[in-house]
Computed example of a mutant assay.
Amino acid sequence: MPVRLVTDSTAMLEPALAAVLGIAVVPLQVVIGPKVFDEGTEDARPEVVAQALRDFTPVSTSRPAPVVFAETYRRLAEEGATEVVSVHLSAEMSGTFESVQVAARDAGIRVVCVDTRQVGPAVGYAVRAAAAALEAGASADEAAQAARDVAAGARSLFYVDTLEYLRRGGRIGAAAALLGSALAVKPLLGFEDGRVVPLERVRTSTRALNRLEELAVAAAGEQQVDVTVAHLANPDRAAALTERLSTRLADGLAGRAVDCGELGAVLGAHVGPGMIAVCVAPRPTIS
């Protein structure tokens, strides 16, 4: 394969799917107390992070060093790649993209770097769009643009029980305006231009999740979409939301399932237990 794809572990790609699509996944790190683990390993499972947060154990995250990406690009070149498209989470949320850019300078092959301005499943859908474009015969630049298009059209929405974890990690952005009344509301948040932004304030968790559903349906509109529901330590409510969205978005899904799963450990460390997110992404257009 002359053009290969690279992404990071926050894209939430299943290992089997990444292998089938030929996508190399570079892990971010989770720091629990004094120990550092690669995301995706047994010691950095989402449930481990959730429990550590409940126990007030210090939890933080760390980007991969540029050398990790450089080694990945060199390995792909040795396997026959002549170009790489590297698709990653928002540079506003992590230094990962900076590491990608540094590594690309000395990769030995051309690397097209894509900052999706998104997180989580939206990044996954973007890199899958790039894979579909390459399968259809697209160039590296065309595949990168396919990733950008899907990421730009995606809507990432989420509910959190508290803003405290986002505050601790310094990733709260414009949503900091909600902190003064955080005890009285259940905030609904979204992503705009790579940053967390406040959407609405709702008085109860039940109303918040109902509103999250309505926002997801509105985001889908009449278009063909892919949808993921993600959660951290909130499986029952996530499953219920998945079932409702599967019914309400049936036409746009055209037989595709609404994916439902636990949020990755790195993102989970910043939103805390109880979080539920919905990602609605447009289906890529392959010419």
Rank of each mutant, 00 (worst) to 15 (best):
R244N: 03
I32P: 03
V280R: 13
A208L: 04
P46G: 01
A216K: 12
T10K: 03
R201Y: 03
G194C: 08
A144R: 09
E79M: 12
P34I: 03
P64N: 08
R201K: 15
G274P: 07
E14K: 12
K186G: 02
G261P: 06
R211K: 10
L134N: 06
R207H: 10
A240N: 05
A103R: 00
A104L: 05
A281T: 03
F69T: 05
T82L: 11
A140H: 03
D161P: 09
A44V: 05
V271Q: 06
E14W: 07
V114C: 08
I32W: 04
D259K: 13
L263A: 10
F191P: 07
P273C: 06
Y125E: 12
E92V: 07
S181M: 13
A107P: 10
L249W: 00
A184N: 13
G173E: 09
E213W: 04
Y125T: 00
L263K: 02
S99P: 08
E135M: 05
V102A: 12
P273F: 00
D226Y: 14
D149Y: 03
A70C: 09
L199C: 08
L189V: 09
E262Y: 04
T7D: 02
R248E: 12
E92Q: 15
R75P: 05
A91E: 13
E83R: 13
R63Q: 15
Y125C: 05
G272H: 11
V84A: 08
L28S: 01
A184E: 13
P187A: 08
V67E: 14
D106T: 14
A16T: 10
A184H: 10
M12W: 11
A24W: 00
A184S: 14
G40E: 02
G40S: 01
V25R: 00
V3W: 08
I23L: 05
P121N: 02
G170I: 09
L21D: 11
A11S: 15
M93T: 07
M275K: 06
R75H: 11
L249A: 00
R201W: 03
R168D: 00
Q29M: 12
A208D: 02
A257P: 15
G190T: 12
R171H: 00
E142Q: 15
R155A: 13
A24H: 08
D161I: 09
G153N: 01
R167A: 12
D115L: 04
V3P: 10
M275L: 11
E47C: 01
G33V: 11
R203T: 01
S99R: 07
A140N: 03
A176V: 14
S287N: 14
G169K: 04
L76I: 04
I109P: 02
L89K: 03
E47T: 01
P66A: 02
S62D: 03
A269L: 03
L189K: 08
F97R: 09
S94G: 09
P235M: 00
C260Y: 07
P187G: 05
P284G: 06
E213I: 03
G108R: 06
S205H: 12
A176R: 15
L253Y: 12
A81R: 05
V31N: 05
V36A: 10
V26Y: 02
V49H: 00
T96D: 09
A132F: 04
G124A: 07
L183P: 12
P58I: 12
S205V: 14
G124K: 06
V119A: 11
S9K: 01
